[in-house]
Simulated assay, not measured.
Amino acid sequence: MADRTPERLVRLLGMVAFLDRTDGATVEELAAQFGVSARQVLDDVDLLWMTGTPGYFPDDLIDFDAASLESGVVRLTQSRGMGRALRLGTREAVVLVAALRALGESVGAALDAGERQVLASTLEVLSDATGEAASTVDVQLALEADPEVVGRARAAVRAGRRVHLRYVDAADRTSERDVDPWQLVTGDERSYLQAWCHSAGGERLFRLDRVLALEVLDAPVTHPPDRATTPTTFAAEAGHERVTVELSGRARWVAEQLPVEETVDLPDGGFRVTLPVSSRAWLRRLLLRLADDVRSVAPPAAATDAAAAAARALARYGEPAPGQG
């Protein structure tokens, strides 16, 4: 699966810092260090070679020893300061304080003890460093959901209790099910309850704004998350349909925010992505949202389905209102 931008950015910065402390490392050593393929390491080096500080002239760019790279060794010759500890200004520190408080508010209860300690200690250091500026920051993370549902979900996560949901899915079907809640997660401008669904027999993400009712049960959670293997976002499966969409450059966020499996950049600034799709309803909404930027879709049936939905919606605008004949 293709990297998302935040994941690759962390790896790129880590790679520069790692190489800055050594006299070089083989491509295979870097691949093992960062858990990626040798091909990905070379792609990362190519990207870093074109990265640097404002000005972006040759002397402003991160540089490597080309002769060493030809022999399979990555040797950093100019880090442009990327290997040094980050120095934050007051405004930047306050922004991080706000982000960490939001993180603690949204998912803190679902973190393990070690993760909570790291979060708390980092927040304490930043708050002390910014002094009175940090005390003026008041973060309230807004979730598009019934506050009572959100409160009960958080309480269930903290207590490790099973919950009973009344839920409306993407196809507007209402169902009732028992789930073992794991954590609240936020992504693509929505918030979700990540849980083990006893009806489906597997992990599911439930959009909180689609939960009509949530009851905390007396039964304990019997399917806890496996933190070593369980992702916090959608995970593609072999049985999911693969859809290829060609888009204009304005829709670049699709490649960065959605779980795409392949991204191909096109000469005119557009790009082509392959998406694993578990729900045709989700794909239909995505294509309608991207309508002005969609160039082609394969298989064609996916485009036909979205076009039919758009036609039905447009037809409704021409229907007379009730009582007007």
Rank of each mutant, 00 (worst) to 15 (best):
R280P: 13
E29L: 04
G325E: 11
G325Y: 00
F271R: 03
S79P: 01
G269E: 02
R242H: 13
R190P: 07
F206I: 05
L30D: 00
R101F: 02
V157L: 01
T230G: 00
R190Y: 11
R21S: 08
P267T: 10
G14H: 04
H223P: 00
L30R: 03
L205A: 08
E115Q: 14
F34H: 01
D226W: 11
R190F: 05
R84N: 07
A235D: 13
Y56H: 13
E261L: 11
M50W: 14
R252L: 14
E262N: 13
R4G: 02
S199P: 01
W253G: 08
L76F: 07
V157I: 12
Y192H: 06
A291V: 10
V168A: 12
L275S: 07
E115F: 11
L214A: 06
L61R: 06
T244Q: 02
V179Y: 08
G160Q: 13
P231D: 03
G35K: 05
R161Y: 00
V95Q: 12
E115C: 04
W49G: 05
S278P: 04
A2S: 15
D218K: 14
R227N: 07
R87H: 15
P220W: 01
E124R: 09
E148I: 09
T274V: 10
V243N: 03
A153V: 11
T53H: 14
P231V: 03
L119Y: 13
A281V: 04
T26E: 00
T263F: 02
V107E: 15
A255N: 08
W253N: 01
A311E: 13
R210G: 07
E132A: 09
L126P: 00
V95S: 12
A109R: 13
R272W: 04
Q324R: 15
D293F: 06
L13C: 11
F206K: 07
V254C: 03
A67C: 10
A133I: 01
G131P: 04
F18P: 01
R272L: 07
S106H: 12
S296P: 01
L42N: 14
Q78H: 14
H164W: 00
R84P: 04
